[in-house]
Design a protein around this nucleic acid. Structure first.
Length: 359
RNA sequence: CCCGCCGUAGCUCAGCCCGGUAGAGCGCCCGGCUGUAGAUGGGGGGCGUGCAGUGACCGGGUGGUCCGGGGUUCAAGUCCCCGCGGCGGGACCA
């Protein structure tokens, strides 16, 4: 039984830090607490489904999960034009989509980061964390440092961000922190500082990240304004880099059609990755490729490995792969779209967020 | 979590590679130096004492669980293993 729980927790993850600790905690039989934080920075893109499914797994494995709606954090990172009200709403929408994705939200504790910010003890923790590390270490944990951060204008609040992330974890007194591998730095900082402050050392569970549709860059919800401007300048027909769960079927189709997917190339191939991390992670992990008999006829892949091999060997044409992927992905997204469309306020909200991100 | 560097006197570090009596600089303490106080006829000087001051100065002195625990060896700061602590870097993608 506990073996099954462990399997449920670790399947489809990129890494567990550490597996031994997780195994021990599970065996201890105590009620474990975990969390995932997300920045309401735009629409829910399909890359987020990876951690959403993992959240579902953790809930089903009996872990008491908190979902932290990181409104302040998003605000610090200038998301959605720094409009805190809109950030809050985007958070609500995300929660709604998690529900639609099959996460049992009745068992999940949704927390607004603003609740933390109201408590002076929280800020005391932030300071203690800051005291327990070095400036160099904090800078290293800065996610935005990745890009052209050297020149980028960076206000001082962004230096506080990592300390807040660590304080978030301590404040909730967690056993498990869930996130994409981009959260690794923050989680590791939390583990290091935990030793110093005599706090619980969280187990970090990291899910893989999806590359953007153009390959290379990661699928990012809040498309950078400058990037976007230069993108539309260069070419009007250039597809956006991400597929959102709220995209209509034909948009999904057209985005995928234009996605980076050279024949036989596996590396950084977004279409393959969608199969690997989403389609083959569902309860129905198979891909049906319908083809004209003159191209070899319909094939069914029962495992991602088979699919990748066929593609690498050139036995599967990118167009066929894209078509099949669109069909399957739309099948998966359909119930989510429907549940959002049922409420006109959400439809309106999607439109607003869309505008705000890209403007 | 992974990798690397570091941990030796109060402080900054050398010594470790190549095993054989633990070092330097700074600091600290004592003195050298300057000033000053002090019942006696006046004046001068010396010494001792107290107090104060002073220097990239000169003497003299003070300095150590060599991070901890094992191991190898006749002998460990030095070599090997396991830890702890500090720092820096890495960690999907760029």
């Amino acid at each position: 039984m506990s073996q099954n729980r462990l399997q449920l927790i670790i399947r489809n993850t990129e890494e567990i830090v550490t597996l031994d600790e997780l195994r021990q905690k599970l065996e201890s039989g105590e009620q474990l607490k975990g969390y995932i934080g997300f920045e309401p920075s735009g629409l829910f893109h399909i890359g987020w489904m990876i951690w959403a499914y993992k959240l579902r797994d953790l809930v089903n494995a009996g872990i008491k999960m908190n979902v932290l709606v990181a409104t302040w954090h998003a605000w610090i990172n200038d998301k959605l034009g720094g409009d805190l009200e809109l950030i809050r709403k985007a958070g609500d929408l995300t929660i709604e989509i998690l529900r639609a994705l099959g996460v049992d939200m009745s068992k999940v504790n949704v927390i607004d980061a603003e609740e933390f910010a109201k408590d002076k003890d929280y800020w005391a923790l932030v300071l203690k964390v800051a005291k327990g590390t070095s400036l160099a270490r904090i800078k290293r944990a800065l996610t935005i440092m990745g890009r052209k951060a050297e020149e980028a204008e960076i206000d001082a609040s962004k230096l506080i961000y990592p300390a807040m992330q660590v304080a978030d974890i301590f404040y909730q007194d967690l056993d498990i922190a869930l996130g994409g591998t981009d959260q690794r730095k923050a989680h590791m900082l939390a583990r290091d500082v935990a030793e110093k402050l005599g706090r619980k050392k969280v187990i970090a569970i990291h899910t893989p990240l999806l590359v953007g549709l153009q390959g290379g860059q990661r699928m990012e919800a809040g498309v950078d304004r400058d990037d976007y401007m230069s993108a539309i300048k260069m070419s009007k027909s250039k597809p956006e880099n991400a597929i959102f769960v709220t995209d209509p079927p034909e948009v999904v189709e057209s985005k995928l059609k234009q996605a980076y997917c050279p024949k036989g190339v596996v590396e950084d191939n977004p279409v393959l990755q969608i199969n690997k991390y989403i389609i083959f992670h569902t309860e129905n992990p198979r891909l049906v490729v319908e083809r004209d008999p003159k191209y070899g006829g319909t094939v069914v892949f029962e495992s991602y490995e088979d699919l990748e091999r066929a593609f690498a060997e050139g036995k599967l044409h990118p167009l066929d792969l894209k078509a099949a992927t669109s069909r399957k992905l739309n099948e998966i997204l359909d119930p989510i779209r429907k549940s959002i469309e049922r409420k006109s306020e959400y439809v309106e909200l999607v439109r607003r967020i869309e505008k705000s991100v890209t403007r």
